[in-house]
Design a protein around this nucleic acid. Structure first.
Lengths: 228, 228
DNA sequence: ACCTGAACACCGTTCAAGT
DNA sequence: ACCTGAACACCGTTCAAGT
């Protein structure tokens, strides 16, 4: 004999609104943004969503599915606003900068993309790069290599930038150790043996990562122009 | 009352030779090479070395220390043989290719370097790149940006190549799922909406990753030449 | 269909205890 | 000094059971 609550009244279940894949992923993104990759545990999700493990696994295959979809979401959100009909060179710079900024804002995306650079959400990015290269009169055969190289560069820098951001915005107890380690490493550089790196290190403080990233893109574009 | 074996005879201790940090890291590299990052667990190490956990933690700070040092070892081993006194352009190509091949042979190194691109072992790489750029008459101010961009490109491609290698050489049960997923994703590409990516995908089979990597390096060098 | 939460197999790391 | 291995805190994932 099971008691049933009167229809439409007080039963007060855990969630009245019902869980959805969308809500789960959105919550995952929030956790990732505020606490980094380490903070995203299934436990943390159940707490934030006040449900059980099974509820989550009912909407999501596993944790990697969760991470991949969250990454897709962020990327699509960013790229959708890009690429007007401007000059192809400016278009490429805008595109690259869009990805850079997105990964700067969500460092965990950089790590995930370098693990899985073939996610569907990047299709639009590749496609746009390809078209802009075509507009730049890069010959067919060279276009694929050029696009691959450019995308790799963007993702590479972005991943490194993400690693830096992880250091900066620690919040963990690790942070002190990390910064101390980094400082110790820089200090160890022997100016006699490593004059170039030493000079680069001292210059590092006055430098804007975003600007340096753009210089790299420009070097690329200049090299691509030589393919024409 | 504890029984003691007669002096100098049968006692058969766990290890007669004595553990060392070097041996631990060497064994870790073997495990990583044969089974990938997932295979390197503290448990696996204790079994292979027939010791206890504490023995390992006596020589090594923690698992990330282990991974970082293993990465350093591989990189130093590779770069030591590089860079003769050839033409700077060839020198840069050789240098880049050396790192590429090393990461191709040890995919886990790629993942680790993209996580920590400032490891001391990379100092020689940066330094060599810097000097070769100087030999190429790249002006001082542009040299740092150019070096950063090039190194980022190399590490970016290498990391992606490592991700690919991880798929190819699975050995796990995951492998089938991975390949199936990848194939499904490629098949989903709409040639109407993504003509460029679709063309790139069909061309992908006939392409040598190593060669494409070199094309990227050449684009870079061409772009750098424009800075002169 | 959707959700619960105890249970499972597995991590990295610690630490009292041994030699 | 160097090593042992049980124990701890914490993972992701499963699954019988509930509604």
């Amino acid at each position: 004999m099971v008691k049933r609550a009167a229809k439409g009244s007080a039963r007060a279940p855990r969630r009245t609104d019902g869980l959805s894949r969308k809500l789960i992923i959105q919550t995952a993104i929030e956790i990732l943004d505020s606490g980094g990759e380490k903070a995203l545990t299934l436990r943390a999700l159940t707490v934030r969503l006040s449900t059980g493990y099974g509820a989550i696994y009912h909407h999501v295959a596993d944790k990697s599915d969760l991470l991949a979809t969250a990454t897709d979401d962020v990327i699509t959100g960013v790229l959708s606003g890009a690429v007007a009909d401007a000059d192809p060179r400016t278009g490429l710079r805008h595109l690259a900068l869009g990805l850079f900024d997105a990964i700067d804002a969500h460092p965990w995306v950089g790590a995930e993309l370098s693990r899985q650079p073939w996610r569907p959400a990047l299709l639009d990015f590749y496609e746009s790069v390809g078209r802009l290269l075509e507009a730049l009169d890069v010959p067919q055969e060279a276009r694929f290599d050029a696009a691959g190289a450019l995308v790799n560069y963007v993702l590479g820098v972005a991943a490194q930038n993400a690693a830096n951001a992880r250091l900066r915005a620690g919040g963990d107890t690790d942070r002190e150790t990390f910064l101390k380690d980094a400082a110790a490493q820089w200090a160890q550089i022997d100016p006699g043996r490593y004059p170039f790196v030493h000079a680069a290190a001292t210059r590092l403080g006055e430098h804007d990562d975003r600007e340096q990233f753009l210089v790299g893109v420009d070097i690329f574009l200049a090299g691509i122009a030589a393919l024409r």
